[in-house]
Simulated assay, not measured.
Amino acid sequence: MVDLSAGLSGVENLRTFIGAMQEYDPTLLSHSLGVTNIAWQLASYLKVENGFQVLLQGALLHDIGKTLIDRAILQKPGPLSPAEQEIMKRHPVDGAQMLAEKGFSKELQVVVLYHHERWDGKGYLGLAGNDMPLNAQIVALADAIDAMSSDRPYREALPPLAVYDEIEKGAGSQFSSELVGRLAQAGFWPTDGLGKERVLHLINRERQWLNFLAEQFHSLRHPLVQIQNRRLDKLVTAYYGE
């Protein structure tokens, strides 16, 4: 079974951060769990082995810096002002600093620090290409998938297939073309077939992943299993609603 706390300098600090996200905004923790779940799936398709635990821990804590942002900004139901955008852009740096102060590893800090970078260098801190660590690239991609798949105060979730269409459009600019190409080739999302056939492909994949997680944690009540179950439910609803 995968232990998300393995190798951490302080398990109690991890629990404290998880509790802080839950207290600050339950949807922040739900999003962080969603990103962790998707990052794990991406890593399995990419056959990532080195730094796997750091990847999952970084995904779980990637937005911890948002707990320092005023809730009125984070939950604003419309576009942010330029000043509010600058405040929002500080959360990767703030999050990495929070981890540093608690003695978490440098490898974990950089995942949090660089999760809003882009392949073309137009991200928050201007890192470009392979200067961005692979784990940070995976978390950035998982973050985008979960964000587009979820309702937000200012917009509704995108349909399932539209999410992956957007990922492919972002190849070479927001994301690494090689990374996106490897995932498409491995079948992480369907590239052929009609709409319903492609959604059915996603349903089958997500059902297999749900079974995998349930076996890993020996429980249907584990938070990641519950997150994945909700993800599958959305796909089933989309399939029968078309």
Rank of each mutant, 00 (worst) to 15 (best):
Met1Asp: 08
Val2Leu: 12
Asp3Trp: 04
Ser5Tyr: 14
Leu8Met: 09
Gly10Gln: 05
Val11Cys: 03
Val11Leu: 07
Val11Asn: 08
Glu12Ser: 14
Leu14Pro: 01
Leu14Asn: 15
Gln22Asp: 09
Thr27Asn: 10
Leu33His: 05
Asn37Gln: 06
Ile38Lys: 08
Tyr45Ile: 14
Lys47Pro: 00
Val48Phe: 03
Asn50Gly: 12
Gly58Val: 02
Asp63Ala: 14
Asp63Trp: 03
Lys66Arg: 14
Lys66Gln: 07
Leu68Gln: 06
Asp70Cys: 11
Asp70Phe: 08
Asp70Gln: 07
Ile73Trp: 07
Gln75Tyr: 11
Gly78Asn: 02
Leu80Glu: 10
Ser81Trp: 05
Ala83Lys: 07
Glu84Met: 07
Glu86Arg: 12
Met88Arg: 05
Val93Tyr: 00
Asp94Glu: 11
Ser105Asn: 02
Val110Ser: 14
Leu113Arg: 05
Leu113Gln: 02
Glu117Ser: 06
Trp119Asn: 04
Leu125Ala: 02
Gly126Glu: 00
Ala128Leu: 06
Ala128Asp: 04
Asn130Glu: 14
Asn130Asp: 10
Met132Ile: 12
Pro133Ile: 12
Pro133Asp: 14
Pro133Arg: 15
Ala136Met: 10
Ala136His: 09
Ala136Arg: 01
Leu141Ala: 11
Ile145His: 00
Ala147Tyr: 14
Ala147Lys: 08
Ser149Arg: 07
Glu156Ala: 10
Leu161Ser: 00
Tyr164Leu: 08
Glu166Lys: 12
Ile167Gly: 06
Gly170Met: 03
Ser173Cys: 05
Ser176Pro: 12
Arg182Ala: 15
Leu183Arg: 09
Ala184Met: 06
Phe188Pro: 03
Trp189Gly: 04
Gly193Arg: 05
Leu194Lys: 15
Leu194Ile: 15
Lys196Glu: 10
His201Lys: 13
His201Ile: 13
Ile203His: 13
Ile203Leu: 15
Glu206Pro: 07
Ala214Lys: 08
His218Asp: 09
Ser219Tyr: 10
Arg221Phe: 13
Leu224Cys: 10
Val225Phe: 09
Arg231His: 10
Lys234Cys: 06
Leu235Met: 13
Val236Pro: 00
Tyr240Glu: 10
Tyr240Lys: 02
